[in-house]
Design a protein around this nucleic acid. Structure first.
Lengths: 142, 142
DNA sequence: CTTGACCTTCCAGCGACTGGAAGTGCCATC
DNA sequence: GATGGCACTTCCAGTCGCTGGAAGGTCAAG
């Protein structure tokens, strides 16, 4: 099978498949014309990679998972460990985004969004308005 | 003020501040010794940038926001628009991560995580087990 | 024989920094 | 004045996971 077919079957762009070979995730054979020749096992691995990437695993995670996948004597604990760590990092990212979202959403609702210049979003970004500690005679007295 | 002081006040690494100058977000003066000299306005902008980046705005968003911040005749609608778009993209990312999280979390709970090799995580990654359409004489008949 | 689709390699770029090397300046102490 | 130690400078390379594009070779159809 040529790279085009494999690309279609795995859903991965040909460029990505070449890249995966580059970094040693797969090792397809080569034909006399120099074309890559993929067999069933290669396609299988690429499908595996596509799925793992879609779950957000890093390339290095994928490499580890692929090694475990190929090792019939693996311990499922090893697999679970990798997945668990990844789950934790996803959770961290979700929290981070939700924190951003909360702050931003508050600012957006407080902004009129008309043609006047005053805007709570810019005010927030500019930081706390420092009160003039110098020149106290200038402000309104009471 | 030298870059070290500004770094401390803005919370941005000196490297990042130099980078921001590189890409034209700030234009500090230079002293006779070649050192960057930052004034109050520069520090203000850097604080602004730090806050905007912490809300997840891209550098290009920051550039636009900074321009609006400096334009006293801006319309708050323009600011709101940028923020709104960013909010939408944050929401997209959250959904994406939550989708991953759900799938992954399911796999993790279903994996025993012991020293045996069978593992629902790997099974999922490997994709659906294709049933043997060839050699129909091999399967159980009914 | 030509066309056009497919394949190859190689290099550059994305975003937003970050690390490190090599060199200069500043300030304090001896 | 020499020395030490830090802060500052520039420049280049690397991160991650691709993606685009150039320049060229291969193959099957018409």
């Amino acid at each position: 099978m040529n790279i085009g077919d494999v690309s279609e079957r795995s859903g991965l762009p040909a460029k990505t498949i070449r890249y995966y070979e580059d970094i040693g995730l797969i090792r397809p054979q080569r034909g006399d014309n120099g074309y890559r020749r993929f067999d069933g096992a290669d396609v299988h691995k690429l499908v595996f990679l596509a799925r793992a990437r879609s779950l957000g695993f890093t390339i290095e995670d994928c490499r580890a998972l692929l090694a475990l996948y190929e090792d019939r004597r693996r311990a499922s604990a090893d697999v679970k460990h990798v997945a668990q760590e990844h789950l934790t990092s996803i959770d961290r990212k979700i929290v981070e985004l939700q924190t951003m979202r909360a702050a931003l959403s508050d600012l957006v609702t407080r902004c009129h969004g008309d043609d006047r210049p005053d805007c709570p979003i810019l005010e927030d970004l500019a930081g706390p308005v420092e009160e003039p500690t110098e020149r106290p005679a200038d402000g309104p007295q009471r």
